[in-house]
Design a protein around this nucleic acid. Structure first.
Lengths: 145, 145
DNA sequence: CCGAATGTAATGTCAATAGTTACATCGAAA
DNA sequence: TTTCGATGTAACTATTGACATTACATTCGG
């Protein structure tokens, strides 16, 4: 299985806030229009981002803004906020290896550290990219089509 | 979503072949016993590993063996063989960003290279681990419980 | 040719994603 | 203070993939 599109949607949302916050009120309806997904899905993601302290959502009046300096928000923060993998573990392990079997009894001791290394390599790369990078590349792409 | 347990199952299968091939005939039934999953699931994985040239499966008589030197098989080979992610892309992208929107029109140009970097970091780590490492650690874990 | 094992189709269950409707709630502005 | 646009969420649905399970044709050494 792939990592849920909630992640790419969340990054898309931030790119929209960066780009449009001065010209428009950025609402879930507005974001639904840019991403082409349902507004309720956007609101679900926004509430996860809000719970992680990454955005501020104005109730009543409406509108989304970024809650921290862009360079302090990494793709890893966003990835964790939208909770795309269960328990934060990337690899799903078969649940009940046979404890009577020497291999089944030890398979976690054999594999867990290696899987963690792989996951850490991925998360480290996610952590190396900030919303400032996204903003810079967004402006560049829009400027030179 | 997490990466399918087919991957950890496949590694478990190789650990079993290493450990038991001299003492037992390693069949799908045998492997189902050690992993505690259905034999048909094991056979599905075995046929994927066979298609990738990683194992040899004896029809009729039964039994599985490794088709290449252990040091030449990496966890990345296994990961690709069992095809846990669609098109080989780890991140699922929302399908139809709005082409009328400056951000929607450019979101792939903004994000694709970054997502690829993350995926490459993960795959590089997977490629750094071979079945020889698995065999060594399996023997170690079984020897000292 | 017998028997144990593989290959595979078909079916069922379960969980997660994503779409959609509906509505209570909020809060600024008229 | 009422109105109106927006958020927060619950509820229901459709779709998809994972995994279990049954069934059976096929294979091949003994």
């Amino acid at each position: 299985m792939q990592i849920s599109s909630r992640f790419t949607l969340a990054v898309h949302i931030f790119a929209c806030i960066d780009t449009f916050q001065d010209a428009y009120k950025v609402t879930s309806e507005f974001l639904a229009g840019s991403t082409n997904v349902n507004p309720v899905v956007i609101r679900k993601i926004l509430s996860q981002l809000k719970a992680a302290g990454l955005v501020a959502v104005a109730r009543g009046t409406g509108g989304v803004s970024v809650a921290k300096p862009l360079r302090e928000i990494t793709l890893l923060d966003i990835y964790h906020a939208v909770a795309c993998v269960e328990n934060g573990t990337l690899f799903h392990f078969h649940e009940n290896p046979n404890e009577q079997c020497p291999v089944g009894r030890n398979i976690h001791r054999i594999l867990d550290d290696k899987l963690l290394r792989v996951q850490n390599a991925m998360e480290k790369e996610l952590a190396s990219i900030t919303l400032e990078d996204i903003k810079r590349d967004t402006e560049k792409c829009i400027a030179e089509p």
